[in-house]
Design a protein around this nucleic acid. Sequence first.
RNA 1: GGCGCGGUAGCCAAGUGGUAAGGCGGAGGUCUGCAAAACCUCUAUUCAUCGGUUCGAAUCCGAUCCGCGCCUCCA
Length: 466
Amino acid sequence: MAFKLHNTLTRQLAELRPGEPGHVRFYTCGPTVYNFAHIGNFRAYIFEDLLRRYLKFRGFRVTQVMNLTDVDDKTIRSSREQGLPLRQFTKKYIDAFFEDLAVLRVERAEHYPAATDHVPEMIALIQTLLDKGVGYKSDDGSIYFSIAKFPSYGKLAHLDMTGLRSGARVAQDEYEKESAADFALWKAWDEKDGAVVWDAPWGRGRPGWHIECSAMSMKYLGQSFDLHTGGVDNIFPHHEDEIAQSEAATGQPFVKYWMHCAHLVVDGKKMSKSLGNFFTLRDLLDKGYSGREIRYELLATHYRQSLNFTFTALDAARAALGRLDEFSDRLRTIAGVADPDHHLPAWAQQALDAFTAALDEDLNISAALAALFDMITAGNRAMNEKTLNAAGASTVLGLLKRFDSVLGFLQPEQQQADADALALLEQRQAARKAKNWPESDRIRDELKKRGWVIQDTAQGPKLKKM
RNA sequence: GGCGCGGUAGCCAAGUGGUAAGGCGGAGGUCUGCAAAACCUCUAUUCAUCGGUUCGAAUCCGAUCCGCGCCUCCA
């Protein structure tokens, strides 16, 4: 069995064979840090997290790089509006971004290079392109990439550029580009840029957007690396341009596999502020949903399928997670302190096999979750029939832990009952012992008001956060 | 117009030639002082529509109807 993925370059499934056996180097396009990231952004980061975690589950060593775009039109504009130096402005959103990732239980990548820390590398790359005659300087001092000099331009997006390539020189209002499809490697300083400026051999200015990903990915991963991911909207022009720049500069194939995740829509419509269906992670947390619940919803749809985000689905996620938690609780009760016996019950082994087979097939998460839920049904049945002993339960708990190394949502949120709630719970037990049902029910209602639900189990009452 | 994705139960969502996974919801049952929660069972003769290929199609081909994305800096 092998891990197969859908490669945007070929539009086909192919087995992942990293350049260095056993070690996957991959680059993921990160956030532009001018605002809080929204749930559509996080859909992409969670997809990449699943990929990362599954690669590790499969035994690969992973080196992942995610860039932070901290200089571009939007960051410059917003920092000026707020009267803050660029770095001070972006720091707030970089910090927020990492906080959000932690809430969503996204594993940290190995490197998070910021564009502003890598301008020398970008200048060097642009110089190479100028030396090779693929880049050219326009009258205003900007540097452009000439796609006419890169015949395979369009291979990722499957665009036929012949019509554009033969185009005549475009007028001044097209930023003095030779061809409309040429893109900026370097933008000459403009008054609107204020203090955001670097010196380059050809003049003052700032890097274009695409060049940062080429410069930083090659710095940390090499001129040729395994995997590059992002949202579908990045296929063109961003990733197409990255390929052009990088391959024109090095003469090497840039990236072997490209993976792109589809968009998230809300109630079937594209998220937009005007429709009132635009949500940051923080908006959802404010509504009382947990990062774990949001993670579940964002993860549960296959990454190449557009994800319809709804609150109904978020509630469904909550219910499904509750069931998963209950299963773990039951196992823990049976397992006690027993050691695992290294031999999975047949139904658990079956789940592991199905789980792996599903994710091997281009991260088929729906089938993987089906395997998990089938295991829960089988496991509950075994526990009902008392055919699962302590060691067996302990072994299955170990398997759940392995599953969670991929899924990242099985671990419940901490929910420590406060002293008051525990005191009430004891009072209710006393009332129940005396068969004083009205008092017992009154205390149950009181706890409910405080957000706790009582579950009377064979092992005594339990408090659950509502 | 070009490139591409999708239409499967009340909702969400797998399955891409061998006779419909899974989740939520709903219905019944078990447990319980009553509950709650949990657990068990059931819940699509059918896969947008119409033709075609085939022993066999949700899956392949053709047409049609809907929805959506990208086409120069939005994950």
